[in-house]
Design a protein around this nucleic acid. Structure first.
Lengths: 210, 210
DNA sequence: ACCTGAACACCGTTCAAGT
DNA sequence: ACCTGAACACCGTTCAAGT
């Protein structure tokens, strides 16, 4: 009961979440729990407990658990997009940058395996029609599409329909990421680095014998 | 209370599963439930109820739910292998058969979306070290590997390391299947048939501009 | 050997009630 | 407006008991 008003703006120990940021705090706590303990540990009780809040407080900010996970997925696509753009630009927006982008994609999945799974509806029902989710997913896809369009202009890549070409590349990298996450590749003794190099080269020239 | 002994071999309404086939019946009931109602509906209670058996009877035949799902996944890989082999052989074990194999793979995933997800640990914890599961998974992979080795011998495909080449192709088709299953492709208005044709062609010749 | 039924410790969600 | 606490209908799993 010493100081009363002035410092309360800096530190509000009790009712910290009575001003609209509980939603953000819940989202971050969910991401943290997912990352550290996996999907099975991501219960509404656990999330609430980590924030010192009732397990039903969440319902003020999300319709249900599915809505929370949809927000988690959206956040994941934003993170992925940032990683892809950074790799592309740091790599010089060309062949090297494109390879770095692929590596960054797979690394994101391996570094955030549970989060990545949730993004693609693995084991959870998302609200697929959610505008925030579709926007975040599209933005991440656009990072890849733009990189291909730019390489087409540079004469580095075939001038196929960009949408179809980007979908093709995305499927390849998504497949590698998924097989890496669930341990299938490791179980067969696959060298992920070697597979990445092989994939980038064959993506360019194909597996045909001509 | 009419007939008593003779017809009981044909129809045993009560103790039908007291002779060792409850395990198989549980497995098939689980696959059926998965196919018709999804993973969330696949509870031990539901499976038991469908067979007119207590919900704990299962524990005589499977260590836990994870073991049941591991058996479901194994069965899925056997089904997938059959589909791949049939497509490859019916297509004439060459370029046409290889394309048919890819189509069969994606079709299997689309026809059995929940089953396919379970096979790759989507939303469930499998016993990844289970010998039956690894054997079934390897056998399915071998169908693809053999097709590539045969095409290498025919001069249709580059003589890369077959294991790495097969993993590359598998990742591509797995990625397409996964994106198709979770509705991501459809949400972007992708024509799956066109994507399949594009993918098969670019798989052969690559996306490079040379 | 094989199956049952009650019990236990969880879970997401609802709802009347508090501030 | 925002949060709580008790209650409800589920779930997987355990275990003593039946045949």
């Amino acid at each position: 009961m010493a100081t009363s008003r002035a410092p309360r703006l800096a530190k509000k120990p009790r009712d910290q979440y009575h001003h609209g940021d509980l939603r953000r705090a819940l989202l971050q706590a969910a991401v943290r729990t997912l990352q550290k303990q996996g999907l099975a540990a991501l219960t509404l009780r656990a999330v609430g407990e980590e924030l010192g809040v009732s397990r039903t407080a969440l319902y003020r900010h999300f319709a249900d658990k599915s809505a929370l996970l949809t927000a988690v997925a959206s956040e994941g696509f934003r993170m992925l997009r940032s990683a892809l753009l950074a790799a592309w630009e740091d790599g010089g927006r060309g062949q090297v940058g494109f390879g770095a982008m692929g590596d960054a994609y797979v690394r994101f999945a391996l570094d955030n395996p549970w989060h990545y799974r949730v993004m693609f509806g693995g084991g959870v029902e998302l609200d697929a029609a959610d505008p925030e989710l579709t926007a975040a997913g599209t933005a991440a896809f656009l990072a890849l599409l733009d990189a291909l369009v730019e390489q087409q202009a540079q004469g580095l890549v075939r001038k196929d329909d960009p949408q179809t070409q980007a979908t093709f590349v995305w499927a390849l990298v998504h497949g590698i990421a998924m097989l890496a996450i669930d341990g299938t590749l490791q179980a067969r003794g696959t060298d992920l680095g070697a597979l990445a190099r092989f994939s980038l080269e064959r993506l360019r020239t194909g597996i045909g014998a001509d």
